[in-house]
């Protein structure tokens, strides 16, 4: 769908560096504290693609919300490019599991949302067109969200994120609700988009295959309150092939960390 166009060479990696140190977080649930993250420590290199893998409800999504600045941690520190994470900022964009497009806006207006909110839309209308083309939705500018399929809507959500030139893309199971064929196509497109934009990508998923196929590194979390139980490096070049025996091996390793070795 999207042609691979690697900017090898001159331009340095545009992604942000992330440092997380002794991070803990808890929710108040009817007065009782519910710990969701327990003493999490790790760093992400600029421009890398990292998958956070773990059982559902373990607190991975909370970690993304903290990185986006939508919530603030109870304890510990989050640094992006050396600076503490404050309020949300368009350089760090979160893509949700649901596309959550604004139903009263056309595709074009949905993608333009960030530029409009920052008051720079007038000068950068061409960026909107470009982002829509990039995700393969040229010609759908005037369509309304209810006229789109699930895959198309999620592409619009990606374009809405990418148009802001983010340096950190936080993906919260963005392909979780798509049918399996669309999902495979979109996985390849995600890798292409990441390579093209040279940003840091953090993907939360509970799909082991997706994690090892997409990411350079897979951080595995245990059940709630989440802490890191393994950190795998996927030392394979892109484009990858699903049938690669190394991927199969990594999948088995990841599953064994998650206590599912017996299902292999």
């Amino acid at each position: 769908m999207v042609a691979i166009e690697l900017n090898t060479g001159a331009r340095p990696a545009a992604g942000q560096r992330i440092d997380i140190s002794s991070l803990s977080h808890q929710f108040e649930l009817e007065g009782d504290p519910l710990p969701v993250l327990n003493d999490v420590d790790f760093s992400i290199e600029p421009g890398s693609f990292v998958a956070l893998l773990g059982p559902s409800g373990c607190g991975k999504s909370t970690l993304l919300r903290l990185l986006a600045g939508l919530d603030h941690p109870t304890q510990g520190e989050l640094r992006v490019d050396g600076l503490p994470v404050g309020n949300p900022d368009p350089s760090r964009i979160l893509v949700f599991q649901d596309p959550t497009l604004f139903p009263w806006r056309t595709v074009w207006d949905n993608v333009a949302l960030g530029l409009e909110a920052q008051g720079i839309l007038r000068k950068s209308r061409s960026r909107v067109d470009e982002a829509i083309r990039l995700v393969g939705l040229g010609g759908f500018d005037k369509a309304y969200p209810h006229q789109l399929s699930g895959g198309m809507a999620q592409r619009v959500a990606l374009a809405r994120a990418l148009v802001n030139d983010p340096r950190l893309l936080l993906l919260d199971e963005p392909l979780g609700k798509l049918d399996s064929l669309t999902r495979l196509t979109m996985q390849t497109e995600l890798v292409n988009l990441w390579q093209r934009a040279r940003l840091t990508a953090v993907l939360v998923t509970h799909d082991v295959e997706e994690a090892v196929f997409l990411a350079q590194r897979v951080v595995i979390f245990g059940p709630r309150p989440a802490r890191i139980i393994a950190d795998l490096t996927v030392d394979l070049p892109y484009p990858r092939h699903r049938g690669d025996s190394r991927l199969t091996e990594l999948r088995r390793e990841a599953l064994s960390h998650l206590g599912l070795a017996s299902t292999w």
């Binding site: 986006a68 939508l70 900022d89 368009p90 964009i93 959550t100 949302l113 960030g114 909110a117 920052q118």
Partner: peptide, 22 residues
């Protein structure tokens, strides 16, 4: 939907934008 506000905030929206445009 609360997610509309989260989306708009991560995209750089200020309170006035959240009220008028969301």
């Amino acid at each position: 939907n609360r997610d509309y506000y989260d989306i708009a905030r991560t995209l750089g929206a200020k309170p006035a934008f959240l009220i008028l445009k969301v």
